[in-house]
Computed example of a mutant assay.
Amino acid sequence: MKEGPDIARIAALIGDPARANILSALMSGKALTATELAHEAGVTVQTASAHLAKLEAGGLTQMRKSGRHKYVSLAGPEVADVLEALMGLAAGTGHLRTRTGPADGALREARVCYNHLAGARGIAMFDAMVARGHLLQADDDVTLSDAGAAFVTNFGIDLAALSKARAPVCRGCLDWSARRIHLAGGLGRAMLTQIEQRGWARRQAGSRVVAFTPKGRAEFDAAFALRD
């Protein structure tokens, strides 16, 4: 008998097209209802409910009640990591969705990856922080330097609160659209929150797109420009 984790079971859960669409929709970081997810998957609510039951049993999603409604979200950041890695593998091997549209370019520029900033702007922020010595990268490990702690504190991040949280402060996440690293972890989430609170960008309803204003682009570029 073979031993070890049963990856075939998890792969089968993700591999169904309807369930894959459901999981992709949840990569926005928002909790959605079965009706909303049925629309995303292109199936009936009854069929979506059956898929959701399998995903929850497999540990990929979780459901919580709020009043009369039930909301579904990913079970945790490790599930988002797997999905983002699979998206990168699919993009790298030419397995892309055949239906493209105006949102494609916007998704590549800036999008939500579960709860942090991804896309070209997420990569630019990570690269700038590494180049300035704010983030220290050694293989897959990413840590915040003393200079980085001062920078993000000045940016409006409460590092003391992040340190008390269960999630790691810094973590690298492989970006599917460019197959390069962007910043995840508690700091990645907090940086995106600050970007939104400053009015630089906002999340588009019903999409993973993070839309920057013209002024927000200029402010972002000034804050995270690569230095010689």
Rank of each mutant, 00 (worst) to 15 (best):
Q62K: 13
A34S: 13
T33R: 09
T33N: 04
R108Y: 08
H51M: 05
G92Y: 00
S73N: 10
G58N: 01
A50N: 12
V82S: 11
A25R: 05
E56Q: 15
G105N: 05
R111K: 13
T98C: 04
R99C: 05
T93H: 03
H95L: 09
K54M: 14
G88L: 05
R111V: 09
M63N: 11
A106T: 07
V43I: 01
A80H: 06
K54R: 15
K70V: 14
L32S: 11
T35K: 15
E56S: 13
R97M: 06
A41S: 06
K54P: 08
L55E: 02
A75R: 08
A75Y: 01
T33F: 05
G42L: 01
A41K: 00
K54S: 12
K30H: 09
T61S: 13
H51W: 02
H39K: 15
S73P: 08
T47C: 03
T100W: 11
G29T: 09
V82Q: 07
K65M: 13
D81F: 04
L26T: 12
K54I: 04
L89T: 11
A75L: 06
T44I: 01
T93V: 03
D81H: 05
S28L: 13
T44E: 07
E40R: 14
G42M: 06
L86D: 06
G58Y: 00
T35V: 14
A48F: 05
P102I: 08
R64K: 14
G92L: 03
G88F: 02
G76K: 04
R68Y: 10
D81I: 04
G101Q: 03
G101T: 02
H69K: 14
R108I: 13
H39W: 03
R64E: 15
S66H: 12
A48G: 01
